[in-house]
Design a binder for these strands. Structure first.
Lengths: 224, 224
DNA sequence: CTCCTGTATTTTGGATCCAATATTGATAAT
DNA sequence: ATTATCAATATTGGATCCAAAATACAGGAG
């Protein structure tokens, strides 16, 4: 094996930089509100400013950074209000995706979701938080994709991207990871019974719980 | 007056190119499926390929063009299925935006919408189709913005952008223009009475009509 | 005649350099 | 002392040039 070091480097510098920028933002290395100094960042990633700027344009489209002409990019402030808003929008879109998905559900599709779930549980047991988050994402996207509404899925994916920062926060807690596994099992069960509304309810409950968890985690001393 | 020729040129080349590209796509000058030859386009717009590529990245984020590494950009095929899907998503998002908007509706807000509507009617009477489409957009966005959900409004705006091509088709027909004016008046009336669900219904009916109109316009000889 | 292969050409990706704009700081006038 | 103005600096925007990849094409083997 020559280059199987976890992540193989993307075929273009802009895609590489895009991943790195996402990581930098989600891990808090670049903090919300920070202006983005292109020269410094480009040097750090060892690329020129051109691919960096193209990656930033992509992130601008996703709402992770803001842009003003001649003043450059800033990391978008992700307030709790933003998080709540994203969850509200996800609620609307994912509910529709699930309803459509259940109508088109096949055995092969279910098997794919079960494989993703197996990977989630494996990663959880092994304590691989990052892998678990990734498999979790695959689990959900697999379901959404059954809807056969590619634009809808694309939007949902973008919304997930835009709150990656908070997601890693959530998955950092062991009880939350356990909870996710339970919810996935319940979801699979309800899917087998073609009960779309119940699945929608589970997903909604999950989002609500995640928001609450993050709220308390972020504002721990508001009462004391 | 020095540069009041309708549109003043944007402060950056990428924004200028972005507008031009949008226009080229909506007017059919660049047709769906067409690969985008950067060199040729850049020369046509009299800029280098750098700002062109940044504009394309923005359009990629909006779903108007697709991108593959080392193979470049293509104008997204906007099938009728795509149009229907965008309308479905708009239905979900705009309904929520309207419900929130009605809860927060102020007199000043209503006045702004009425001004936009006045401009719509003026442009319609003057036969200025492009101006009418623009005022129409302002009318709706004004309402959506009362929701105070900036990300939601942003998404809706992007969805509107992605179907601009079809919109100009719709507004090209006089009866459609007349219909829009009626619907706006009804909408304003219902807003004054704070009847969110009725507004949602009007908007849904409008979208349904637009889709049907475009379907018949695009496939005129399917029966004969 | 078909298919594979190697090469030429086209097209995209990226680096460097220069221009334009914004920001900062210093100086002077009120 | 405060504010306005102008110069110096930092930062972004864009053009050109070169590298890398993909595509098209020609030639030869089967």
């Amino acid at each position: 094996m020559t280059s199987v070091e976890g992540h193989r480097r993307p075929p273009t510098a802009q895609q590489f930089v895009l991943e790195e920028l996402r990581r930098a933002i989600t891990t808090g290395r670049l903090r919300p509100g920070d202006p983005i100094r292109q020269e410094a960042l480009a040097e750090e990633f060892d690329v020129s400013r051109v691919p960096l700027r193209e990656a930033l344009k992509t992130l601008e489209g996703e709402g992770l950074v803001t842009y003003k002409a001649h003043r450059g990019y800033c990391v978008q402030r992700l307030s709790l209000d933003d998080l709540r808003e994203v969850c509200l929008i996800r609620e609307l879109l994912e509910a529709e995706a699930v309803r459509r998905a259940v109508e088109r559900l096949t055995d092969a599709g279910l098997a794919a979701a079960e494989r993703a779930q197996a990977e989630v549980e494996r990663a959880a047991a092994a304590g691989e938080v990052l892998e678990m988050a990734e498999a979790n994402r695959r689990f959900h996207m697999t379901i959404f994709e059954w809807s056969e509404l590619p634009r809808l899925v694309r939007l949902i994916r973008t919304l997930w991207d835009s709150t990656d920062a908070y997601r890693s926060l959530y998955y950092g807690e062991e009880p939350n990871r356990q909870r996710v596994i339970e919810e996935h099992r319940a979801t699979l069960d309800l899917l087998r019974r073609r009960d779309a509304e119940a699945v929608v309810a589970v997903l909604a409950a999950h989002r609500a719980h995640a928001v609450t968890a993050i709220e308390t985690q972020l504002a721990p001393g508001t009462v004391g």
